[in-house]
Design a protein around this nucleic acid. Structure first.
Length: 371
DNA sequence: AACACGGGGAT
DNA sequence: ATCCCAGTGTT
């Protein structure tokens, strides 16, 4: 018997009721909800995505509801989940399906794969869970499980590796019940064949698993690329006039694209950033052509944000200005209530949580003359 | 082929 | 600190 057949049989046998993960999108038959859950779960732990899934399905019961929603509102629901291009593509695809396809979700693998925000993994997931089509999912769980069970050393993040593991996954797939098989291998990877401290002692694959029998479990899967972390330093200017705050939308192809932020400047070293504290505010206000009186109320302490690929430090200068002024840029003046409706990066929400806006209270009148 | 893209949890 | 998570899009 083929090894892939043995693996499939052992896996499906393992996936009994007590070994299944209970998750809100399990056994879902509504393709809109399946698609929504898969987009949310990209590079996201099931536990983390859970509340977002519930939030979205409550706010947008149908794909047409999502399509009709303002993009800004959808971003607000996505706030905090990260990888914000997923949100833009989600809305784009909802509009495409609702308006161009009359609400009918594409029902072939190739058509599903064409959707923005849908790659090989998500297309296979939707095709199998939504339509019972025989396509094997390959996600982080599958790379790990297959590399260990079959003892494969090809780097999972190489082109050759992606091809090899997809082929093996196809061989192992239970074409009679692709949905159950795909669920099983991901549940197995998430609960037994975990990245750290896999539960080999109680694993039903133990006698069959090449990595276990060769004591190479901790060496698999192999990855060849290691990410380099970029350090960045920002000073944000939280500018208030009367009861309004200046904000702007991030438009660059950079982290937090399409979220809101405060006017700011980035420094190229920690040294410059620290030395600039306070003294640079006047120069910066000058550059923004703020030609009226202002009062620097406070400098906040720094807040750190650790991302996968960046380590970001930010502090904030709280500035009260005497009259509202919009330079030749994209500042928008918003009340605190309006600001609460906008999506912000976690780092900036942390400033709100620290109570920065309250620092403005009662200090609006003490305005210094600009020099 | 290499890189960019968030935030949280586990070790 | 480091790795990883129901990966995808761009260059």
């Amino acid at each position: 018997m083929e090894q892939s057949t043995k693996f499939r049989q052992k896996l499906v046998k393992w996936h009994t009721s007590e070994n299944k993960r209970e998750l809100p999108w399990k056994e879902e038959k509504n393709v809109y909800r399946i698609w929504l859950s898969e987009i949310i779960l990209q590079q996201t732990r099931a536990e983390q995505g859970w509340k977002y899934y519930e939030r979205f399905t409550a706010a947008y019961p149908t794909i047409t509801d999502l399509a009709n929603a303002p993009l800004e509102e959808v971003y607000k629901y996505w706030e905090g989940l990260g990888y914000y291009n997923r949100c833009r593509n989600l809305h784009h695809t909802a509009q495409y399906i609702a308006f161009e396809l009359n609400g009918k979700f594409p029902d072939s693998f190739d058509a599903i794969l064409q959707l923005k925000g849908v790659g090989p993994y998500t297309a296979a997931a939707i095709a199998s869970f939504g339509f019972g089509l025989p396509h094997a999912v390959v996600d982080g769980n599958v790379f790990r499980v297959l590399s260990r069970v079959f003892g494969i050393e090809t780097a999972v993040d190489s082109t050759a590796g992606k091809k090899q593991f997809q082929q093996l996954a196809n061989d192992c797939l239970d074409v009679k019940n692709p949905a159950a098989y795909n669920q099983a291998i991901m549940d197995f990877g998430a609960t037994v064949c975990k990245p750290d401290l896999p539960d080999c002692k109680n694993c039903s694959m133990q006698s069959f698993c090449i990595a276990y029998n060769q004591q190479r479990v901790n060496e698999l899967p192999v990855k060849e690329k290691k990410i380099k972390i970029r350090k960045r330093w920002f000073t944000f200017y939280i500018i208030m006039q009367h009861n309004k705050i200046a904000v702007q939308k991030r438009t660059a192809k950079d982290v937090w694209s399409n979220l809101y932020e405060f006017p700011n400047q980035e420094f190229s070293s920690e040294k410059e950033w620290k030395e600039a504290k306070g003294t640079v505010t006047e120069l910066w206000l000058n550059e923004q052509k703020i030609n009226q009186t202002y009062n620097v109320i406070a400098t906040t302490k720094a807040i750190k944000q650790q991302l996968s690929h960046q380590l970001i430090w930010g502090n904030a200068q709280l500035v009260h200005v005497n009259s509202k002024h919009t330079p030749a840029n994209s500042w928008e003046w918003k009340t605190a209530d309006e600001v609460k409706q906008l999506p912000f990066p976690k780092l900036l929400n942390d400033f709100f949580k620290a109570g920065i806006l309250e620092l403005f209270a009662g200090r609006h009148t003490t305005v210094k003359q600009k020099t």
